[in-house]
Design a protein around this nucleic acid. Sequence first.
DNA 1: TACGGTATGTCAGTCAATGACACTTTGCAA
DNA 2: TTGCAAAGTGTCATTGACTGACATACCGTA
Lengths: 218, 218
Amino acid sequence: MDTGQRRARKKRQTRAALVRAALELFDAKGYEHTAVREITDAVDVSERTFFRYFASKEDLALSFARDWTDAMLAMLRERPASEDPLAAMRGAFRESVLAEAALDAGDAEDGEGADGVPTYLLVTRLIDSTPSLLARHLRYLHDRDDEIVGVLAAREGVDPAADLRPRILAAVFGSLIFLANRAWRTEGSTSVEDMVAAFDAHADQFTPDLFGHWTARP
Amino acid sequence: MDTGQRRARKKRQTRAALVRAALELFDAKGYEHTAVREITDAVDVSERTFFRYFASKEDLALSFARDWTDAMLAMLRERPASEDPLAAMRGAFRESVLAEAALDAGDAEDGEGADGVPTYLLVTRLIDSTPSLLARHLRYLHDRDDEIVGVLAAREGVDPAADLRPRILAAVFGSLIFLANRAWRTEGSTSVEDMVAAFDAHADQFTPDLFGHWTARP
DNA sequence: TACGGTATGTCAGTCAATGACACTTTGCAA
DNA sequence: TTGCAAAGTGTCATTGACTGACATACCGTA
């Protein structure tokens, strides 16, 4: 249906230019203080065009989160059945983060993001520091939880409507990602490997002694 | 500082009138299709006044959620130390929901909400069916998780910065509430007791067999 | 009663988002 | 090559949430 090459390429370019300009502006002056107008001026397209590419300003800011979630779900589906649910999610997380980071390094033609900062970090920081974006992002994750639940339930052969375990695990997973991300950024690292390590350290803490009364841990 | 009685009373009245009018309109025509203007017209105040009472339209819609969270936290703090964390949260949930429902029944001068529908149900339904509200609500809960974590950690004497158990439990708690709420509404009940029962049924499923591979449950 | 502070109204303006319509470019076929 | 239809874009007008500045009405108190 869309055999046209030049046309498709131009679209991709415009879209990429909008995202790039937007992220730079967001990083420089903050999300709230960046008007759509400024973004479109930087790329020299009309404001109307912006909204033909993105449903909203938030939509643009979260486009990376969407890509990552897609990747993570794809990885999760491919995990061997021998892994238990938690192990599968940990594996899927690791693989998807590394894959996205590689992609990012790939199309970083003249230095990533503003200067040397990987997009993954840029976007995470942006979301976590912008209340309205954080809200949208949480809802987005919440929406996609259903898919995670579906995959986990299928893997383990349980009924997701009656058995809450997949649902609970998905919720916990989301929390762990959030906390690990924040911890990672606090430590000031920009390496994706460190991010994955931070996640693993957090996931290690998710153990059965969560139930009953708690006693101090080693 | 504010000994004036008439003044304070009028403020409360205006605020209550705005909330009441808003909820009725939201219920009748939906959140998105209700303009702030319509709400203020119904109460006969200026649009500017609305924004002096509420930071945003969303702020008004979520004011009940705030009240409930306050109540739930207060209850949680009062739970006996003998209860393990999960039991304490279950108790706090039950008590706070029943308390808020009683409050609601109290000031429902001429029939609750639109007609006989308890505010708790009205608001829950509204949030769950309005994407932008759901987003804000999720962020709100996320923000207040810190407080829950603090209480749980203090109860059990663990360090919330190093020990993730309180955090994870708070996240799971949020999920359980959501799911129980939805299940309850699906069943068509408007009784708060049923809501509490639904929550308990869900919480019962949160057990240590969450770890490792899953086997079918009885 | 007069004063000071607080609640409210009015007005103008910003910004995100959407619909309607016109114009230009591109892909493809006669 | 020409010509047409679709896709992409621009322009304009409009709605609706929200904010700041300033004026006005109101209440509690000296």
